[in-house]
Write a protein that binds this DNA or RNA. Structure first.
Length: 475
RNA sequence: GGGUGUGUACCGAAGUGGUCAAACGGGGCAGACUGUAAAUCUGCUGGCUUACGCCUUCGUUGGUUCGAAUCCAACCGCACCCA
């Protein structure tokens, strides 16, 4: 019987989340046997770039990987790139990045930490640790860095790296010395975490494998000195020591990567027509304005996962057990139309990021808007009931109530003022195609809105197609 | 610095004096069918107009012409080659 700590890698493998891994067998053994007196197990880290004040679902994979690590009985370490974020990672980027100011980066680090507190457990023996690499990179002197760190890097090796090579051979988009050095900083991060906190594993996306290996290399080189001074956590009696006899502890440093998330239709994961899917709805807890991605939109994103992707996403993103996932996959195969797997995915993710209360609201709204005979598609019987969530998630505009007096105004004119149509012509097109509903009822091409159209609260709810809503307020 | 190309709508790409709001493909939006999928089919895709039609647009600015995306000039951008 495996212990949870051992099972970490197998879990990742089941979920298709193990792409590359250094010394897999040794890593498995390493995870299985943390030294006595360390209830927190082993320590692994993943880095995050504070380029925005929130994270998108593209960033979800590393957070979830850390949480899996934690659930397996180990200690996750979140490294906020407050320092590296000032530089910018050239991986996968075709153009030099714009530099952020230090204030921007600091603010982003603060804002993002909410998300980590939500998913990771910061209490108990395996309490997650959050650190900011500005704390050690910020104080690094240029000369010291060149002497102590830079000496271990061969430029010949660095220019072989894919992320750099691409930019070197691109005639009109070169790479600055700044971004070229990014690799060194990331490697130094790993070294620093290893030395001061005993972090022995770095997790990252497959595009990070090169950087991770460079970090491992650096630890082997710089660490040779440190071993001599007998760092206590390096004395790991249970650790495998077969590889390098004279320097066993230095061998116990690992990297593992997951594959980049792809969609079956080749589209970019995490992007919709209306932009990226964010993990938070608001700028901060005090903010009440609708922005980012509402819980409703978040839920809908997952619910609309393509059939071909749904099982993969369950494996990648949820903490459901292998049995539950296998079961859902079977049910999905048996009756795709029922969309049980989609619903489970959407529920799980929404609850994880937004909590049970929000999930409940979102599900009510979904039911009201989409189920047959619900408020939005009532088809004539009973008053239209506007789901509360729509008020906060749908785009809203305010208009002068005087426009509704008497004959009111043509619906065409109103649509052109909303996010639903860019011009009257477009509005007319939509109307003639029976795409527009007012307060849940299909609207005629020559329809007008009057005071009689108003819902309680002075609102009129417009819908284009099946899913696109716009709320108008009248005052 | 020299040469040769090239610039058309959201993107790609036809169009080389009137019949051009500009073929075709992709993308987008909507409808039908379904499951709030996928695939398929249909419509729309510069603006205003119930409509006839009108207005603005083919890198920019001028010019030739009754008439210019199309011809001329200058300028700007981009690509490749030479230095």
């Amino acid at each position: 019987m495996q212990t949870p700590r051992q099972a970490f890698l197998d879990d990742l493998r089941f979920r298709g989340q193990l792409h590359q891994c250094t010394h897999e067998a040794e890593l498995a053994a390493h995870l299985a046997s943390p030294p006595a007196g360390t209830p927190g197990g082993r320590r692994a880290y993943a880095g995050f770039d504070p380029t925005a004040d929130s994270l998108t679902i593209g960033n979800l994979v590393p957070i979830i990987a850390l949480r899996r690590f934690q659930l397996a009985g180990h200690t996750p370490v979140v490294v906020m790139g407050g320092g590296t974020g000032l530089i910018g990672d050239p991986s996968g980027k075709t153009a030099e990045r714009t530099l952020r100011t230090r204030e921007e980066v600091d603010a982003n680090v603060q804002a993002q930490s909410r998300i980590f507190r939500r998913i990771l457990d910061f209490t108990g023996p395996t309490a997650a640790v959050m650190v900011n690499n500005i704390d050690w990179l910020g104080g690094l002197s240029y000369l010291d860095a060149l002497r102590d760190v830079g000496k271990h890097f061969s430029v010949n090796m660095m220019i072989q790296k894919e992320s750099v090579k691409e930019r070197l051979h691109n005639r009109d988009q070169g790479i600055s010395y700044t971004e070229f050095s990014y690799m060194i900083l990331q490697a130094y991060d790993f070294y620093h975490l290893w030395k001061t906190m005993g972090v022995t594993l770095q997790l990252g996306g497959s595009d990070q494998f090169g950087n991770i290996v460079v970090g491992i290399d650096l630890i082997r080189r710089m660490g040779a000195r440190d071993v001599m001074s007998q760092q206590p956590w390096l004395a790991t009696p249970g650790a495998p020591s077969s590889r390098v006899v004279d320097m066993p502890q230095l061998d116990a440093v690992f990297g593992a990567t997951w594959p980049l998330v792809t969609k079956s239709d080749g589209g970019k994961f995490g992007k919709t027509e209306s932009g990226a899917i964010w993990l938070t709805a608001r700028q901060n807890d005090a903010d009440t304005s609708p922005c980012r991605t509402s819980p409703f939109a978040f839920y809908q994103f997952w619910l609309n996962t393509a059939d071909a992707d749904v099982v993969k996403f369950l494996k990648t993103f949820t903490f459901l057990s292998h049995e539950e996932i296998t079961d859902l996959a079977a049910r999905h195969a048996a009756d795709p139309g029922k969309r049980e797997a989609h619903a489970a995915l959407a529920r799980h993710m929404t609850e994880l990021l937004h909590g049970p209360e929000e999930l409940e609201k979102v599900e009510l709204a979904t039911k009201a808007l989409f189920s047959k005979g619900g408020g939005a598609d009532g088809g004539g019987d009973g008053p239209f009931v506007l789901p509360e969530d729509l008020l906060s998630s749908a785009p809203t505009t305010t208009h002068d109530k005087a426009l509704l007096a008497g004959q009111g105004m043509p619906l065409v004119d109103l649509l052109a003022l909303t996010s639903l149509a860019k011009s009257k012509t477009e509005a007319r097109t939509n109307l003639s195609q029976n795409a527009i509903s007012v307060n849940g009822r299909l609207a005629a091409a020559d329809a007008r809105v009057t005071e009689a159209t108003l819902l309680p609260g002075g609102l009129i709810a417009l819908r284009r197609g099946k899913k696109t809503w716009h709320i108008t307020k009248w005052a």
